[in-house]
Simulated assay, not measured.
Amino acid sequence: MARSPGEGSVSPSASLRGTRETLSDPELESLGSDSEINGFTAERKTDKYGFLIKTEENGGREEELSVDVLRQREAKWLDMLFNWDKWMAKRHKKIKLRCQKGIPPSLRGRAWQYLSGSRVKMDQNPNKFTELDSMAGDPKWVDIIERDLHRQFPFHEMFVARGGHGQQDLFRVLKAYTLYRPDEGYCQAQAPIAAVLLMHMPAEQAFWCLVQICEKYLPGYYSEKLEAIQLDGRILFSLLRKVSAVAYKHLSKQKIDPILYMTEWFMCAFSRTLPWSSVLRVWDMFFCEGNFVCH
C-alpha cells in the first residue's frame, strides 16, 4: 500500500494514497547496530549537530560565530525568554529580527517552545502527556509507528541504535499524539518533525510542540484526506508560474503535478530536504512567523 510521492507517473490523488503511512526511502533506513554501519569509525565521531561523520569526511566547513558574538546573542535571548510576555506584546519586531539572525543553539529548543506557544499549552495541561504516555495506544497506529522509527535520521547519534533512547522517545511522542487526536491518528510525515524536536528538547516538550505544529502551523496537513497539502500544492504551482514561467511550462508539459515533488518538502517542513544548518534556520523563522516561511 505504501508508496513514496513522486514514484513513477501517477495522478495527484494516487500519489497521496498511503502518504499518511509512509514517505520511506530505503537509503534512509537505520542499519540497526554499530557493527553494521560501514564507513564510520569504531569510536563514532559526530558533527556539531550530532550526525555521524564517515572516516573519509571532515564534516565540512561552516562559518562559525565568534564566542563573544554567540555569548552576546545568548544573553539577549535569555532576557527575552525571562520576560517573554512583555517582549511579545511590545517588541515582537525585535524578536523577529533576532530569529532571522539565528537562535543560539543552546537556547533553540526553549525558544521554539516559547515562539510556538507550546510552553503555555503544556502548562495548561499538566500531567496530560504522562497520562497519554501510560496508555497502550491503538494497535493499528502503534504497529505503523514502530515500523517507521528506524527510518528517522538513522545517522544521528540519537536514533542510530534500534530501540535506543531516541527511538523510544520518538515512539512515545508519536503514540501520545494518536491518543491526543484519535480523529487524526498518525501520519508518517509527523515522525521526522517529532525527531527534530527531540534533538532539541525532552519528550514532553516535544509532544506539545508537535501539537502546536499540527494544530496551529500546519492545520489539515496530517488529516486523512490531506486537503491542506493539496491546496498548497496548487498555490505553489500558481506562484511558480509567476516567478519562473519556463519551469512552469516544462513541468506542465511533462504533466508533473506539484504534489509529486513538494509533499515531503512541506509535510516534513524541509527537515529531510535541506542541509541541516539551513533546516534549523528555516525552523527558527517557521516558529516565529508561521508556515508561509516554508512555502
Rank of each mutant, 00 (worst) to 15 (best):
Q190P: 09
R20P: 06
L198H: 04
M135C: 02
A191W: 11
N125S: 10
K242P: 07
C187M: 07
V142D: 01
T178L: 03
V160L: 07
E21F: 15
V282L: 13
R162H: 14
P202D: 01
A191M: 12
N291V: 14
E64D: 00
K90F: 14
M88F: 06
S35W: 07
R44D: 10
G59N: 07
S244C: 08
K101E: 12
P104A: 01
A111M: 05
E56S: 10
Y221K: 07
A195R: 03
L52G: 00
V160Q: 14
G137A: 01
E21C: 12
L78K: 15
T55Q: 12
R108H: 00
W84N: 09
C187N: 14
L132N: 09
A195N: 08
W276P: 05
P139S: 02
G39P: 03
L274Y: 01
Q124V: 07
E36C: 13
L170T: 01
K216L: 06
I235R: 15
R272Q: 02
S4V: 02
F266Q: 02
D183M: 01
K216H: 10
R98P: 00
W77K: 10
G8Y: 03
K96F: 03
L65H: 13
I259E: 03
E264D: 11
S238A: 15
P182L: 03
P192H: 10
I144F: 14
L179P: 08
E204Y: 04
R91S: 15
E289S: 06
G18F: 04
V69Q: 14
R3C: 12
A89M: 04
D123V: 05
K96T: 01
V160S: 12
C209K: 03
A269K: 13
S118D: 03
Y49S: 06
F171V: 00
C99H: 01
P5R: 02
L97Y: 09
Q72S: 00
E36V: 12
V279Y: 00
A247T: 12
P258S: 05
R44H: 11
V243T: 15
R281M: 10
G59I: 00
K140C: 08
G166T: 00
Q168A: 15
M122Q: 12
Q72T: 08
V160E: 06
K216A: 08
F292N: 09
W87K: 09
R108C: 01
Q100H: 13
